[in-house]
Design a protein around this nucleic acid. Structure first.
Length: 520
DNA sequence: GCCGTTTTCGGCCCGACTGTTTTCAGTCG
């Protein structure tokens, strides 16, 4: 049983317990366990066999036993019994925005509603609005939510979200008294994809800002319109939340709205043990009742006795424990990046010339780049045959003479065919400075086939890099079935050893995951 | 159900907004 399946079981249990009206903290325990397993870098089965389950935060005796049962028997009696208490599929109702456990149970009990379609019909017939505490507005809102759920766009890559944010910020910047307008949430944490956009700012007149926000021309629907918090749906079905507080609470607001949810929960629980209560308005000292305000996040974390935690690390793992003992890792900054070893140009499916890429790389402060266009087998991407490859090498050679502060490596992204053979003969590959190998077709091969295929390809000594090893496309295509452990175990990390004169580069590894549609 | 700078028991993040209500329950982030 893999981690994903175990996560699903515990999330389901949490949902069912919610419907049942169980102790909320018990529900949270299951949610937390699911969260921990979801973010685990090891397989749970492995941890079970090594008796190390209790190392996972949020896994205690009871849930630990349930995991062992799941791993051993692929079933869980507790889960089966719980499921039998409810109509099948009822937890799908919880996916509808504005339908929580109380509403879902009410609908099921009173109207025998078991599916989203049942609910839609019942609303249209007017039965839902007749229920206690329901009414026309609520039932209309639920109907709208169902429609939204049905044509909900997936999370979008951060590269697509950023321009949307820029646009909104530009339009709101002119509002009098508005300051510090910026994105927070998963966007600020630089998650690969974002589900919605969180914007925040400070103002002395929050109403004026909110009015401007919900009146933006790209707003299709207003979900929530308050004095400090509003939510809208943009054309393109994308949700944007805006939160405004007064200027002097900017630090705590930024911290609050950047999240993640789990990071904030962990931080607040820890703070309570120090008699401090955290909110977007500041830190309340529970002994004196005084609210302290913070203009910066740095001072906010400092007050809690913590090293500043960069947004990218605030995912509810062990970042707080590390910040407590000043041992957070140093993150890679743009200035740390000295080169790029996977670049396409107009020679295949890129857009710019090699020289344009060199100029841009120089502007970015790079010291080296590798030109790695597609090999001949990628016809659709205008892959290079031997003759064009030679011409390209000549051009690179000329450019290297003209640019003495930039090393341009002549390379290729050679296609790994379905049988694991490569798209170029060895003698062609051996003449290149650097060779990336990549899978582009036959993506549906099973795990064994795919692993054998890749292992065979990278056994070729001419290969330096396995490019985009998962072949996934964010919000577009699932990863291929590839046993990464086998790849690493058999060949160690694929490294590139090349020592241009005077550069001192002796160990470079590269893999491009792809921000928003990186060309493959 | 988990967990501990005060605890092996008694806590468990915090606040905004909406709709249906005459004071708050439910939902969300």
């Amino acid at each position: 049983m893999n981690n994903k399946e175990i996560v699903k079981v515990f999330q389901d249990i949490a949902d069912l317990l919610e419907l049942k009206g169980e102790n909320p903290f018990k529900i949270r325990a299951y949610q937390r366990a699911a969260f921990s397993i979801e973010h685990l870098s090891e397989e749970v089965e492995q941890l079970v066999s090594e008796n190390r389950l209790r190392e996972i935060p949020g896994i205690g005796e009871a849930i630990g036993k349930k995991i062992s049962e799941l791993v051993a028997t692929h079933r869980l009696r507790y889960y089966d019994e719980l499921k039998s208490e409810f109509p099948k599929g009822i937890s799908a109702l919880l996916n509808i925005p504005n339908v929580g456990p109380k509403t879902a149970m009410l609908l099921t009990r009173e109207l025998n509603i078991e599916t989203v379609d049942d609910l839609e019909r019942a609303i249209k017939s007017g039965k839902v609005a007749m229920l206690p505490r329901m009414g026309d507005k609520t039932s209309d809102n639920i109907l709208r939510s169902i429609r939204m759920l049905k044509d909900k766009t997936n999370r979008i890559p951060i590269g697509q979200a950023l321009p949307i944010v820029d646009n909104i910020i530009k339009r709101l910047q002119g509002v009098t008294g508005l300051r510090n307008l910026m994105p927070a949430g998963s966007l600020r944490r630089f998650m690969e994809t974002v589900g919605d956009i969180d914007l925040l700012g400070t103002a002395d007149n929050t109403e004026r800002v909110m009015e401007a926000f919900i009146s933006l021309p790209q707003v299709k629907q207003v979900l929530v319109a308050g004095t400090t918090k509003s939510s809208v749906i943009l054309a393109g079905d994308f949700q944007v939340d805006l939160r405004i507080v007064e200027h002097d609470a900017f630090g705590s607001l930024l911290q609050h709205f950047t999240g993640s949810k789990q990071h904030n929960i962990n931080l607040r629980e820890r703070s309570l043990r120090q008699d401090l209560s955290l909110s977007e308005y500041g830190i309340t000292d529970l002994k004196t009742g005084v609210l302290e305000k913070y203009a910066t996040e740095e001072s906010f974390y400092r007050r809690l006795g913590l090293q500043f935690i960069p947004p990218e690390l605030r995912e509810g793992g062990d970042e707080i424990q590390k910040a407590q003992v000043n041992s957070l890792p140093k993150l890679v900054e743009p200035s740390d990046i000295k080169g790029d070893l996977h670049i396409h140009t107009g020679w295949s499916d890129g857009h710019a010339s090699i020289e344009e890429m060199v100029e841009e790389a120089r502007r970015m402060g790079y010291q080296y780049i590798a030109i790695t266009d597609h090999s001949v087998g990628r016809g659709i991407a205008r892959g290079l045959d031997a003759e064009r490859l030679q011409k390209q090498k000549n051009e690179i050679c000329d450019l290297n003479k003209r640019y003495n502060n930039m090393h341009i490596l002549a390379g290729i992204e050679v296609d790994i065919r379905a049988d694991g053979s490569l798209d170029y003969p060895d003698e062609l590959l051996s003449e290149l400075d650097i060779v990336c190998a990549a899978v582009h077709s036959g993506l549906n091969q099973n795990r064994n086939q795919m692993t054998e295929r890749v292992l065979k390809a990278i056994a070729n000594p001419n290969i330096n890099i396995l490019a985009h090893p998962t072949c996934r496309q964010l919000s577009g295509r699932d990863p291929i079935e590839l046993d990464m452990e086998a790849v690493f175990h058999t060949h160690g990390y694929v490294t590139f050893q090349y020592r241009p004169q005077g550069m001192g580069m002796d160990h470079l590894g590269a893999e491009k995951g792809g921000l928003g549609g990186f060309p493959e």
